[in-house]
């Protein structure tokens, strides 16, 4: 940054006052929340780690954590497989018509609300919904295919939710890969696919890591879609915490669980950050 553009430290700090107030508010809320996880139950008061022991010791809670990590990984991979071609075509398309159509589908998805989409999936995937009715009428099946109130429905609806995050984050890094590089590869004899695997893909890796990082983080904190589409059978971490408060009324355990979950999320943010730095420094990939 040019030194001439820098503003004085005083002004900079004053400018941050509103944000600092917000942060104060935010972290106070968390402070109290965090404290409640350490509070010993009973009148004795004082701090204890017992709730953490309970949480981490409970096989069902641990199972929820594993499941959350696993589904988030599947979702990230799914977004990569479907989302990368979409981002690539948007960036490289010569036809502005198709490009606008693809972008439109992304924008519309963002604007269409989450509860409404969850409801839409219930009807589309339900036993007497769009897909099953279609299959029945065309004679493919007699019995309904169970697509909701199980992991399938949760996965489909979540994939739909996280996909735009992946695609939008993937577009900028792809745009930074100069088209001449791909043209040069073809010009030197590579087929489209070889040009993709030998030139485009290696150069997209940092972008893929960045997009995956965001997608994974969003997937981890899923709450609504497992709630609506899971029928109580699919609990991800956020749902488990919700239940601990509103069904089991065990606030200390819930906040212990939330803290563990938070640490886990931050851990993965850190891991992805390390990964991104590793792929950026590895080969000397500085765009000319």
């Amino acid at each position: 940054m040019h030194d001439t553009l820098a503003i004085s430290r005083r002004n900079a700090l004053w400018g941050l006052v509103p944000a600092l107030i917000v942060l104060l508010l935010f972290f106070s809320a968390f402070g109290i929340f965090f404290l409640s996880s350490l509070q010993a139950s009973g009148e004795a008061g004082g701090l204890t780690m017992a709730h953490y022991a309970r949480y981490l010791g409970s096989p069902s809670e641990r199972d929820v954590l594993w499941r959350t990590l696993w589904i988030s990984t599947e979702l990230t991979l799914g977004s990569l497989i479907i989302g990368y071609p979409m981002a690539y075509v948007i960036v490289r398309s010569a036809s502005s018509g198709w490009r606008r159509f693809l972008m439109l589908s992304l924008v519309v998805t963002f604007l269409s609300g989450t509860v409404t989409r969850a409801y839409a999936w219930l009807i589309i995937l339900g036993n007497s919904g769009l897909i099953n009715t279609f299959l029945r009428k065309t004679g493919f099946t007699d019995a309904p295919v169970h697509l909701i109130y199980n992991e399938t429905g949760v996965f489909i609806s979540l994939l739909h939710f996280v996909l735009p995050f992946f695609v939008l984050t993937m577009m900028a890094p792809l745009k930074n890969i100069s088209r001449s590089l791909e043209d040069a590869a073809v010009n030197l004899g590579a087929s489209r696919w070889r040009s993709f695997f030998l030139v485009t893909l290696p150069l997209s890796v940092p972008g893929i890591v960045a997009a995956s990082s965001l997608t994974f983080a969003v997937a981890l904190s899923s709450f609504l879609f497992p709630l609506v589409l899971g029928g109580g059978r699919v609990r991800m971490a956020a749902n488990a915490i919700y239940e601990l408060i509103f069904t089991r009324f065990d606030l200390p355990l819930a906040s212990a669980g939330a803290t563990v979950f938070l640490v886990l999320s931050l851990f993965f943010v850190w891991v992805f950050g390390m990964l991104q730095r590793a792929v950026q420094l590895g080969p000397s990939v500085r765009q000319q």
């Binding site: 001449s180 087929s191 080969p283 990939v285």
Partner: peptide
């Protein structure tokens, strides 16, 4: 890719990786 018409572009020509 089969024409054997090798080209030198103006910039961003070498594969950086």
């Amino acid at each position: 890719n089969r024409r054997e018409t090798a080209m030198v572009f103006q910039s961003y020509t070498l594969f950086p990786h």
